[in-house]
Design a protein around this nucleic acid. Structure first.
Lengths: 173, 173
DNA sequence: TATTGTTATACTCTATAACTATA
DNA sequence: TATAGTTATAGAGTATAACAATA
């Protein structure tokens, strides 16, 4: 065999001249699915390139806002499975980015906090996140990006009231 | 054990009072990922409830537009893996929704076409698709939906030129 | 030798359950 | 008995490779 000619990854093969059905392109839901998957893929790749993952970024971001420093709260805030969070925290702890110690008041619990290197890392990951988003939305100008974000947030808040701006502690600052 | 109290599906657990980090909610990419996954889940459920799948709908929609009647073309149009498409077509054929026969001009190929029941099914699935989208975007009025679609299409076309409107055969009609 | 459709395999994710230590 | 965190297991989904038929 010469080389695996068939590189049919389900995502973007982009055979010119063969386009998806007009009917699907007209569907906002279809576009949402497609774009969601694409941006997820790109994000993954970008983070993996530096030995991290988008999940690391999310966890660190949660920790910086504090007030959700037990593992259960972190998991709930991000909608992660608690058992899955464990592995993430292991990695972050091993890298010295977080601190995990028992809660003296309830020795079942772990109090998780950001270390100074963790804060630095967060800043780094944040930068990557911004640049990915910037690149992904390159075809939109500033006003359009704001418009898009507003519309998406409206829909998302409708399905998950927790996202609604204003309500809650961890607001803009 | 009483009942599996832990229902931590990674998606929407919605513990009140515990919200995702403000930083993430501000990210358009984050919202895209979230909404893309949510709408995908809901679509799956809705189709499965009637013993179908969104993939069936996509394939039938491609076939109705014709001009992509070999399996390779269908797969490319949808960005599916060719080997995975086989199973889908098996299901559709068994249900009598499509017709699969050898191409006399190149006996390696299969010519795939919609049957009359297939056309009926397509209409049915189309209706479901529309109602899901309608429900999912319930918080937006008509103008906002158009706006959202336009913005998403712009971004999507930027990443996949095949989506650009106008160019190609299978346009509006 | 290359290509179409197909089948088989391997691998990654992730959902669930099971376990411990505390309460 | 219930809960926080952890570990282990199983199942779905998917990417890859191998294959038979035809060109």
């Amino acid at each position: 065999m010469t080389t695996p000619v068939h590189s049919h990854s389900p995502a973007p093969v982009l055979k010119v001249g063969v386009k998806p059905p007009y009917e699907l392109v007209c569907s906002t839901a279809f576009l949402l699915k497609r774009l969601g998957m694409q941006v997820k893929e790109r994000t993954m790749e970008a983070y993996e390139a530096i030995g991290a993952s988008p999940y690391h970024y999310s966890v660190l971001a949660v920790l910086e806002e504090g007030a959700r420093d037990t593992q259960a709260k972190i998991a709930d805030a991000l909608g992660y499975d608690r058992s899955w969070l464990v592995g993430l925290l292991d990695e972050l702890e091993e890298a010295g980015l977080i601190d995990r110690r028992r809660d003296p008041e309830d020795r079942r619990r772990h109090l998780v906090s950001l270390t100074p290197p963790g804060k630095k890392k967060l800043a780094e990951l944040r930068k990557i996140s911004k640049s990915i988003e910037n690149e992904f939305l390159a075809s939109l100008d500033t006003a359009q990006r704001e418009q898009l974000h507003e519309l998406l947030l409206k829909v998302a808040s409708d399905h998950d009231p927790r996202l609604a701006s204003g309500s809650g502690e961890n607001a803009p600052a």
